[in-house]
Design a protein around this nucleic acid. Structure first.
Length: 104
DNA sequence: ATCATGACCCCAA
DNA sequence: TTTGGGGCCATGA
């Protein structure tokens, strides 16, 4: 029988649907996953991704357009690299939401 | 049970 | 633009 998706699974499902070259905010993902204002839960869920996943976690950023990791961190550099690789411009750790936000 | 801490957000000033 | 305060809630000390 089919199991009800857990909260993290709902989140991963939404994130998986973000198209290449677009980004979504943590709050946007929370809302789309039916979790209301639990934006923080999205960050937690992305940190719990199992190995071998195909979830484009790097397309999730803050509502302000900023990358959520410290600029001097390895994760920050990784995320910027992945975003730029698919055409998303990152200037000073920030993405233009006006240009790149996913709008289903 | 309490306290602090987060890959956060929104509003007001 | 920046700051401050409240909201949210799982997790670990």
């Amino acid at each position: 029988m089919t199991m009800e998706p857990t909260k993290p699974q709902k989140i991963w499902q939404v994130v998986h649907a973000i198209p290449q070259g677009k980004v979504a905010s943590y709050g946007q993902v929370a809302h789309m996953a039916g979790l209301g204002r639990q934006a923080r839960f999205v960050g937690r869920a992305l940190g719990q991704l199992p190995e071998g996943h195909e979830v484009p976690w790097f397309r999730v950023i803050r509502s302000s357009g900023e990358i959520a990791f410290p600029k001097d961190s390895e994760m920050f550099r990784t995320q910027v690299g992945l975003l730029e690789a698919e055409g998303v411009e990152v200037v000073n750790g920030r993405v233009s939401m006006r240009k790149y936000q996913w709008q289903p």
